[in-house]
């Protein structure tokens, strides 16, 4: 169950809208959101031949407090508890430490405003996603993107209504399923997806593909039944080909509101050598992406 969320923010435009997307989790048992702001040490420390800008730190703290107080009122009105955490240091390690110290069930990071850049996630987001031991939701509130030459803009709201679970039967993807179940009370319909590697199947021997297809459909149906038994409606989809492209295609065709997937958390070296589907989806999909280690 997602009872406690860590919400780090730099107070960029539309940050609150991103926070507001989490309010619906109250119905799924959300009790508290820890609002976190990290003041970069480089902004206040190591003044060349000077020292530390304590007054500047205090000013930045006070500004953050005032902004958070406003947000806390909104949370209080909805019956969600909140606490404020303001730290000084390097953002990524501070957020990762805070997530562990607070025993958060979910960390919410990412760009909250529209972007014309190619990637929907910056280097800090990717690093958090890679290193976090806690599930991470990469929130993308207002996005602009291109599909087949057409420029589109989108507001990602009601993000928990049609989550799309990417399943490869691995342990991380099963943990992603558990995370999905933890907020099933706010889901309208879940989409469960599996991708078949056709090229790999053909390499083995004739008939393998049909067998894999049959088994995959059965497994998807079982998963769906499991979800339906717990009260969520569900649809299944089988993809074939390059997995990242298939996830993007199906998520758009089926109007998914979020992508959920497991990630092995093997780290940078592994990602550099093998590439990472989950990181590709974080970067390329216009949908919020929830990664579970």
């Amino acid at each position: 169950m997602i009872e406690k969320i860590l919400f780090p923010t730099k107070f960029r435009e539309l940050s609150f809208n991103s926070l507001a997307q989490l309010f619906s989790l109250k119905e799924a048992g959300l009790k508290e959101i820890v609002l976190c702001h990290v003041i970069s040490r480089d902004d206040v420390g190591f003044v060349p031949f000077g020292g530390y800008l304590k007054e500047e730190e205090n000013r930045l703290r006070e500004e953050a407090m005032i902004r958070f107080e406003d947000w806390q009122k909104s949370l209080e009105e909805r019956g969600i508890g909140s606490r404020v955490l303001i730290k000084v240091g390097e953002p990524v390690p501070q957020i990762l430490h805070a997530a562990e110290d607070e025993k958060a069930d979910l960390v919410v990071v990412g760009k909250k405003k529209k972007t014309v850049e190619l990637s929907f996630a910056g280097s800090n987001t990717i690093e958090i996603v890679t290193r976090s031991k806690v599930p991470v939701l990469v929130s993308k509130y207002h996005v602009s993107y291109d599909v087949e030459g057409e420029h589109l803009e989108k507001i990602n709201d009601h993000i928990f209504e049609r989550p799309m679970l990417i399943c490869d039967w691995s342990e991380p993807s099963m943990r992603a399923l558990d995370t999905l179940k933890s907020f099933q009370s706010v889901i309208e319909e879940a989409i469960v997806f599996h991708d078949i590697n056709v090229e790999e199947a053909h390499k083995k021997h004739a008939g393998t593909l049909d067998e894999i297809k049959k088994v995959s459909i059965e497994k998807l149906d079982l998963l769906c039944e499991e979800l339906q038994q717990e009260g969520a409606s569900c649809e299944t989809h089988l993809g074939a080909g390059k997995i990242s492209s298939e996830i993007l295609r199906i998520s758009r065709d089926r109007h998914a509101t979020m992508i959920i997937m497991g990630t092995s958390g093997k780290g940078r070296l592994s990602e550099f050598i093998h590439g990472s589907v989950s990181h590709n989806i974080v970067r390329e999909s216009e949908l919020p992406t929830l990664l579970v280690t």
Binding site: R41, V44, G45, F46, V47, P48, F49, G50, G51, Y52, K54, V88
Partner: peptide, 12 residues
Amino acid sequence: APNFMVRSIAEE
């Protein structure tokens, strides 16, 4: 140079 670094860390 290290004087200001030490001072900065101490104050922080």
